[in-house]
Amino acid sequence: MKNRSKAYWKENLKYLLILLGIWFLVSFGAGILFKEFLDAFKLGGVKLGFWFAQQGSIYVFVILIFVYVRLMNKLDKKYGYDE
């Protein structure tokens, strides 16, 4: 029981680390820190850094949550925590 919950928690933390890494990259990374560099490129008429700051990061956020929901539902099943 203890081991099962520990292993579950560890996998959960691994997912969080990866997903929050992406979360940081698209917003603080592409939208702020590397904004100037990315502005040299364009996406659909919008400078890329500016696009990430005002559009792209938000789309990625939505996708991240739904990916997380899927991953966790699978994880719950694997460990018998689904109901």
Binding site: S27, G31, I32, A53, Q54, S57, I58, Y68, V69
Partner: peptide, 21 residues
């Protein structure tokens, strides 16, 4: 202009934290 991005990213990115953490 670009300065307004703080609201866009700030008020949506918080939901990722909320959902995951």
């Amino acid at each position: 202009g670009y300065d307004g991005s703080v609201y866009l990213m700030g008020w949506t990115g918080g939901y990722v934290l909320l959902a995951l953490l």
